[in-house]
């Protein structure tokens, strides 16, 4: 199984976020807590999908990620776009810095 992290959108501003080890959320995938197998992934989702988390984020789900040069990157292009921003507006989104 590929490594997985939990992603969602933040309730108040809608931005893409990733769950951290302390059950918080970061806009930077590199801060995310990683699941290495299915039981770990399930446990992460359980922590992300609570009533309490519902007032912080919307629609948590698992995505596949990989270590590339020591950095986590999503494997699906859709999720790559979420960590960057629109490919047609490189001045916008996280890629704009």
């Amino acid at each position: 199984m590929s490594l997985q992290v939990v992603t969602a959108n933040r309730l108040d501003d809608g931005l893409a976020v990733f769950m951290t080890a302390d059950d918080g959320w970061s806009t930077d995938l590199r801060d995310a807590v990683c699941a290495e197998d299915a039981p770990q992934a399930e446990a992460l989702m359980a922590r992300a999908d609570t009533e309490k988390q519902q007032v912080t984020v919307v629609g948590p789900y698992l995505i596949d990620v990989a270590q590339e040069d020591g950095v986590l990157v999503p494997t699906k292009y859709r999720e790559v776009l979420r960590t960057l921003g629109p490919s047609v507006r490189t001045d916008l989104g996280y890629q704009a810095g």
């Binding site: 959108n9 309730l11 108040d12 501003d13 809608g14 931005l15 893409a16 009533e51 519902q54 007032v55 919307v58 629609g59 859709r78 776009l81 979420r82 921003g85 629109p86 989104g93």
Partner: peptide, 27 residues
């Protein structure tokens, strides 16, 4: 919704009825 009185499931049709989607990067 922000106070938690409405769940996302309950809020979603209400926000949609008012043109608010959640997309890849943002609302």
């Amino acid at each position: 919704r922000i106070s938690g009185e409405l769940t996302e499931d309950q809020f979603k049709p209400l926000r949609l009825m008012n043109g608010v989607y959640l997309q890849l990067h943002a609302y």
